[in-house]
Design a protein around this nucleic acid. Structure first.
Lengths: 130, 130
DNA sequence: ATATATGCTGGAGCTTACTCCATGTCAAGG
DNA sequence: CCTTGACATGGAGTAAGCTCCAGCATATAT
């Protein structure tokens, strides 16, 4: 079972142009039929889903391409792929820490804004009293 | 006390060009001296530090510009700024959830890679035995 | 036989966030 | 007086990640 680029685009939520762009960039290489049209398989779907995970965690296409190269090269590259994923894991952890820290600061800022709004309202109602 | 753009760039870690770019984009408006040169103050330093926090949490310049507009407009915009920060807070939370979820999947993948490496090594040593 | 839909390629164009460059001004030091 | 250094402006260039388009091929429906 295989899908045309139009169908596959719909299934993955990517645009046709994006799929062709990913191919140009070396992320995915679907088979071609006798008319040179792309035929995406279930395997391609799994692979795209994984690419999207990597993208969601801000991996640049350059690096995904490197992973793709290893993947297409076959089983002998397992260790290299593992290393790549482990380093990406560390990157995600750092990213999460950064977000967490910034969230903390933001919360302080939000609290102080709330406070100053309350004070402003107090001042207003005092003015009305007079 | 105020700083020239060169000194301020060094202090903030931003390049001179970036500082001018931020001004062009409406993020920050330092005073000028009698020769039209930029003079950054302590207040600008606080403001830049906050801008950098927003950037670190992936707020686009377009949106930081909106916050800047409100800030430069004065105290009457407190509520709007609060609202903007609260919606950004929600954005950060979603971002963190996304990362967490992807981290989970990545860990599964890493575990399975480790497993298949172990099995591969077993197969190898069995081959050597023969 | 022809119209329509879908796909192909190569290349231009777009957005974001800078970064670099040519040209010019001005104050201070030698 | 003249050079040097820091700064000014306007505009071009860059990298990433798409997005769009012209021009052509092919298959299916009418």
């Amino acid at each position: 079972m295989s899908y045309s680029i139009g169908v596959f685009a719909e299934q993955t939520g990517l645009s046709i142009d994006t799929l062709r762009y990913y191919e140009k960039e070396g992320l995915i290489f679907p088979q071609r039929d006798e008319n040179n049209r792309r035929m995406y398989t279930e395997n391609d779907k799994t692979w795209i889903a994984f690419i999207l995970r990597l993208k969601e965690t801000a991996m640049p296409i350059r690096q995904i391409k490197e992973y793709a190269r290893l993947r297409y090269a076959g089983d002998s590259t397992t260790k290299e792929r593992l290393a790549l994923l482990q380093s990406h894991r560390a990157f995600i952890l750092k990213e999460m820490e950064r977000l967490e820290e910034n969230l903390g600061h933001l919360d302080v800022k939000i609290a102080s804004y709330k406070q100053s709004i309350i004070e402003h309202e107090k001042a207003d109602s005092a003015a009305v009293q007079r």
